[in-house]
């Protein structure tokens, strides 16, 4: 068994002939938060999407190397991409609730897993909403459309939706970049809470956010992993000049 909950070994990714990720080896220990930072177009979102194989959706994408979840390669033959995604939850940059009720949004993952027990579904929805710190705000309006919620609430609903199926890993793709500062703070608090139960990989272009929420930070530049270190070390004492330049705001 590997030490890491999720990891990549020598992974390269190509869009047609363009190489977007270059030979990346990186691991995330269980119940830790790892942040990926780097300038736009450095491949950090692409890297994140390796772990639930969302890159598969794009035509012409080719992946080399191993992407491991619990030490097993999720790109191996015979692995169902849907099974991977049920284990690895994802929260997107822009909140993307389904145009259904709040309740149905959270229950969706259970329903596609064939769960029909009504009480179990209700309990799970409540648990997930509580975990996402949204329960108190919506408990009287579960039948209301999710689209009626504010942006910050929508994003927490999307987190609750991901939590309902009890994944072990959560991927977050700039989860608060589209939100106001107060909602942003709530999401960051939430990440601290979630870390107790989940392993979290988060992409952000907000370096303060990375410093606040993560245990480890990886710096990507032009598809390469430049530096990976404990967050406080990386920000106070970067070893690579490019990292130094980026965190001091000289480019990006």
């Amino acid at each position: 068994m590997s030490y890491f909950k999720i990891e990549t070994r020598n992974v390269s990714l190509y869009y047609g002939n363009t190489q977007a990720l270059k030979n990346i080896t990186l691991g995330v220990p269980e119940n830790k938060v790892v942040a990926i930072i780097g300038p736009s177009g450095c491949g950090k979102s692409t890297y994140l999407r390796l772990f639930n194989r969302m890159n598969d959706m794009i035509d012409g994408v080719r992946v080399e190397g191993e992407v491991l979840l619990n030490g097993k390669n999720i790109y191996a033959d015979g692995v169902r991409v849907e099974d991977v995604r049920k284990r690895v939850g994802m929260v997107f940059q822009k909140p993307n609730p389904f145009p259904k009720s709040i309740f149905e949004n959270v229950a969706y993952g259970l329903r596609i897993n064939g769960v029909t027990n009504k009480r179990y579904i209700e309990e799970t929805v409540e648990r997930a909403l509580r975990q996402a710190a949204l329960w108190d705000e919506v408990k009287d309006n579960l039948k209301k459309s999710a689209l009626a919620l504010s942006g910050g609430q929508q994003q927490r609903l999307c987190i609750a939706r991901a939590l309902a199926v009890e994944p072990s890993v959560i991927l977050m793709d700039e989860p608060s970049s589209a939100l106001d500062p107060i909602s942003n703070a709530k999401i960051e608090e939430l990440i601290w809470e979630l870390k107790k139960k989940y392993t979290i990989l988060i992409v952000t272009h907000n370096m303060q956010q990375a410093a606040r929420v993560s245990d480890w930070t990886a710096f990507f530049y032009l598809g390469e992993l430049i530096e990976y270190a404990e967050t406080k070390d990386l920000f106070t004492n970067p070893r690579n000049e490019k990292t130094q330049n980026y965190i001091t705001g000289r480019f990006g």
Binding site: N70, G71, G78, D83, K86, R87, V165
Partner: peptide, 25 residues
């Protein structure tokens, strides 16, 4: 083939609510 099955189970089989369901596929 045996190996693939194990891989699939290791990834899929760790949750309580996860049932083995083939119908959707």
């Amino acid at each position: 083939m045996q190996l693939f099955k194990e891989v699939g189970q290791a990834i899929a089989g760790e949750s309580k609510i996860q049932k083995k369901r083939r119908l959707p596929y």
